[in-house]
């Protein structure tokens, strides 16, 4: 499982792998560099069952890169355990989570 990126107009959607951890750092970064014109980013967690603190770090990083407007980056299709990790870390303040 790898990170895949798809473009829809000026929106990009990044689909995360089963485990979103330090192993993904390079792939994740590659997925959004040179996408500075994008109006919005969807980060799709549909396959993700596991995320650790380095995953949270990566999310913080992408938020820095793309401006800090809450609605710019949406975290979608999170399973309940992923959602709990995000909420514990108060990520709902920075991202729209669904």
């Amino acid at each position: 499982m790898t990170i895949t990126k798809t473009k829809q107009g000026d929106q990009i959607s990044i689909r995360l792998p089963n485990k979103f951890n330090a192993d993904c750092i390079q792939d994740f970064r590659d997925a959004y560099t040179e996408e500075n014109d994008s109006k919005g980013i969807l980060i799709d967690f549909r396959e993700t069952e596991y995320m650790d603190s380095s995953g949270l770090g990566m999310l913080i990083h992408i938020r820095r890169e793309f401006g800090e407007e809450r609605s710019n980056i949406k975290l979608i299709n999170c399973r309940s355990q992923i959602k709990r990790i995000l909420l514990i870390s108060r990520f709902d303040k920075y991202f729209e989570i669904s």
Binding site: D52, S53, L56, G57, I60, R64, I88, S89, R90
Partner: peptide, 18 residues
């Protein structure tokens, strides 16, 4: 404590919560 935009320290905070 957890600071906005801290790049680290989230791990320990997460552990305490879980």
């Amino acid at each position: 404590s957890i600071k906005d935009d801290d790049y680290h320290g989230r791990g320990v905070y997460m552990l305490q919560e879980l």
